[in-house]
Design a protein around this nucleic acid. Sequence first.
DNA 1: TCCCAAAATGTAAACGTTTAGATTTTCCAT
DNA 2: ATGGAAAATCTAAACGTTTACATTTTGGGA
Lengths: 340, 340
Amino acid sequence: MPSKPNIQDVAKLANVSIATVSRVINNQGGVHRATEERIQKAIDELGYIRNAAARTIKRKETNTIGVIVPDIKNPFFPLVMAGIEQRAREKHYFTMLSSTNESPIIEEKIVKNFIERGVDGVIITTANENGDHLKLLHDQKIPIVAVDRNIKRFEVDTVLVDNVKGSYQAVQHLILQGHEKIAIICGPQNTTPGHERFLGYKKALENYNILFDERYVIQGDFGEQSGYQVTHELYSLEDKPTAIFSSNNLMSIGCMKALNDLNWELGTEVSFIGFDDIDIATFLKPKLSVVSRPMNAIGEVAFQLLYDRICFKESLQKREYLLSPELIIRGSCRLGKKTF
Amino acid sequence: MPSKPNIQDVAKLANVSIATVSRVINNQGGVHRATEERIQKAIDELGYIRNAAARTIKRKETNTIGVIVPDIKNPFFPLVMAGIEQRAREKHYFTMLSSTNESPIIEEKIVKNFIERGVDGVIITTANENGDHLKLLHDQKIPIVAVDRNIKRFEVDTVLVDNVKGSYQAVQHLILQGHEKIAIICGPQNTTPGHERFLGYKKALENYNILFDERYVIQGDFGEQSGYQVTHELYSLEDKPTAIFSSNNLMSIGCMKALNDLNWELGTEVSFIGFDDIDIATFLKPKLSVVSRPMNAIGEVAFQLLYDRICFKESLQKREYLLSPELIIRGSCRLGKKTF
DNA sequence: TCCCAAAATGTAAACGTTTAGATTTTCCAT
DNA sequence: ATGGAAAATCTAAACGTTTACATTTTGGGA
C-alpha cells in the first residue's frame, strides 16, 4: 500500500471508471445504486480522501475564505471570528485566519498568499485603510468585505459599526450627568474607528454647547500601553478632566490600570465610559459603563455579505452594513460631579 | 485579457518556455541574468501569481498547517495561536485555524477537511482525548502535535503544562496560609488538564495531612456559567470552605461574579487562587492570585515540534514538552483565616 | 422479438504546475 | 578556427481531479 490512494485506485478496486467514482464523490447522482455502494465500499476500504488541490485546479474555487485581522490578541477579533466561522461552517466554507500585527507589509504578504491559495473571498480589518496594498485582490476580482475599518481605494462591501453614534451617546450621557471637562483618549486618526469616535465626541460637545478644549483630546494607538500613559498625561493637567471617554477596549484597560496606580478614584473623582465592553467592566467598583458592539453579529453579517458576493459577483451593488452599538450604563459615570 | 494569467502566459510574453519561468518563480537559479529580468518583467506586467493548488499537486506539500482549538473565544487560545503564527511565519508556513466548540464531531469534520487540503501537519487541542476520531490523520501519517491535552490513542508529540505542579503549588500556598477547608472547582475529569489539576489538589492535601473532603470537590465544565453556579453550591454548604481553587480562567470569572452577587467577600471571608491568569485579576480588590501559563511559548514550542516533525517524519522519537506554570501571588489569598 | 429512449458508464482532454532528461547555446583553452 | 565542458533552455510527462461528450446497458412498449 503505497502512500495516499487516489481516485484511480478507487476506480480500479470498484471496477469502474474514474468518472463514475467522481460522480459518487460529488454526489452528482445518475449512478446505479449497486455501483455506488460498491464504490463507497472501495473508498472506505482504501481510506480514500479526495485531493482538494487537484479539485481546485479544475473547479477554480476552493470553498475557502481568508480572514485578516490586525491583532488576534485583541479579544474583539476572536469574537467576530466566531461569528464568521459559525456561518461559514453552515455553508461548508472554510476559513484561513491571519493576523497582521497592524503591519501593512505583513498584510500584503498575507494577501498574496491568500491569492496563491485561491481563496474565494476575503474578510478584512485592514492595517491601512487607503488600501493600496490590496490592489492585487481587487485586480483578481476576489470579493472583499471590510469589517470595522473601511477601504478607501475601491468599493467594497462593508460591515461597520456606527462609531459616531456610539461615542456621541457616551459623551452625551456624560454631559447629562453634569460633566463639562470631558477628555477623550483617541485612537489613530487615520483609522475609521479612531476618527469617527472622535467625531462623535466633538459632535456631542457642540450639540450641548460645551467648549471644545484641545487639552482634553489626547492621542493613543489603541494599545493598552498607550491608554496607560495617556491617562497619566491627563492626570498631570492642572485642570483635570472630570470624565474620560476611551476609544477602545485595550486603552480602557490601560486607563483603568493608570487610575489605580494614580489613586485617581473612578466614579467619584473621575467618571468613565469606554468604547467596547471588556471582561473587567463588571468587576470594577463602580462597574464600567461601556459602548458595546455586537461582535458575533458583525462576523455573521460579514460572512453573509461575502457569501452573496461570491455567488453573484459584480451583479451586486456595494452594500454597507452599519450596526448600532449599545450604550450600557453601569456605575462608572453615575456620580458625575455637578459643576453647578 | 481573460481571467488569471498562468505560467504559459508569462512564458509566451517573455519568449521562453514554461520550465524557465518555473525556475525563476522558485528561485532555483541556473537562469541567465537577462532572461530572468525579462521574465520578471513579464510577471509584473501580467500580475501573475502562481497557483498554489497546481503546485501542491506536484510537490505534495502545502506549507500549511492546521490548528484546531476547542474554543476560540477562550483567550488562552488566541494567545497560543499568536505564538504559533509568529514562528510559522518565520518558516514561511501558513496557518488554518478552526474551532470545534468542544465537539468531537465537528473536530472530525475539520480533520477531514484539513486532510483534503493537504495540510503538512496539525496542532491540536482536542475535544476528545481518546483520539478515535483522529485516526484518519494518523493513517495518513500527517504529523500531529497535541497542545494542552494529550491524545491517548497514538503517540504524538506533546506540549503540555505541568498541571499537577501548578495546582499543587497553588493549594500548597493556600495551606501554608492556614487554610484547611479548601474547595476545588474541577474541570471535566476526562480531560488531562481537568484531571491533573485535581490530582495536584489532592496531592497537596495529602502531603500536608489535610482531610480530603468530598463536599469541597465540585465539578465544572471549564465554562464561565458553570463556575458561577458551582460557587453558589459551595456557598450553600453549612460548612463553607475558606478558600477556593478554580481549575481554569473562565470558571474563575464565573466564580468571581458569584462571589460578588453573594456578597461573599474575597480575601477576608474566602481566599482564592485560579488556574490561568486573566485580565480581571489585577483589577479586583484584592488582586487575584493565579497559576500562570506561558501561552506564547506554548505556541512557539508547538510549532517548532511540528516543523521538525514535518522535516524529519518518523526518524524522530516522540517528544514531550512539559512547561512549568508560575504561581503569581497577589492579594486574594494573603489573608487566610487561621483556624487555630 | 425488436426498437428506442433513458439510464449508466466510459473516454479523454483539460486544469497549472514541477522536473527529469534532452537539447541547444555559450565561451574558453587550444 | 575548433572541441567540448558548462550553462542555459526546452520538451514532455506527470500530478489527481472534473466534465463534455461518446458509448454501452437497461427495460418497457409495440
